[in-house]
């Protein structure tokens, strides 16, 4: 769908986000079901952002409960926590931490874009906002990964 404002053609992705605000749920509905999240045929920036937002969101909710379960080990006392720390500082687990930071950055930065565009701000620059956010996120991710793997050395 194409719209216009001030004589300029509006990006179809913007219409999608604004329509999503009016639609059911807090985030734009792209398709009838989650299968569409992985449908890469003719994937636009808006569709890519939508799919990534959904997938990272589910991952972060899963992590929220995993985090609560891990922190519950603290109730077992110092020995239980020290045992967990030995496991959590192995390269495999540190790598999973970096994946978590990746998910948080992508979800947070794209969520910021959705909030701005859905509120009517910078609606005509939503693609540029997405890619600049991802570029900024990549820099932060690199810094975080370096910190996670080198802290305490």
């Amino acid at each position: 769908m194409r719209g216009s404002r001030g004589g300029r053609e509006r990006d179809p992705g913007v219409e999608e986000i604004l329509r999503g605000r009016r639609g059911e749920g807090p985030i734009s509905r792209k398709a009838p079901g989650p299968v569409a999240w992985f449908d890469v045929r003719s994937m636009t920036t808006g569709h890519l952002a939508f799919s990534i937002h959904r997938i990272t969101g589910i991952g972060i909710v899963f992590y929220l409960y995993l985090h609560l379960a891990v922190l519950s080990m603290l109730l077992g006392g110092e020995d239980a926590w020290s045992g967990f720390l030995e496991l959590a500082t192995t390269p495999l687990f540190l790598g999973l931490d970096v994946i978590l930071v990746f998910g948080l950055l992508v979800h947070g930065l794209n969520g910021t874009r959705l909030a701005l565009v859905g509120s009517g701000f910078v609606a005509d620059h939503q693609k540029a906002l997405f890619w600049s956010g991802m570029a900024f996120g990549a820099i932060l991710l690199l810094y975080a990964a370096l910190h996670v793997f080198t802290a305490g050395d």
Binding site: L74, G77, W81, L85, L94, D97, V101, T150, A151, G152
Partner: peptide
């Protein structure tokens, strides 16, 4: 994230039991 993982010097930015409490 910063308070838990970026001001702690241990690898992975993880706190010891006493530090968490």
């Amino acid at each position: 994230m910063v308070a838990h993982h970026f001001v702690v010097e241990e690898i992975g930015g993880l706190r010891t039991y006493r530090q968490v409490l």
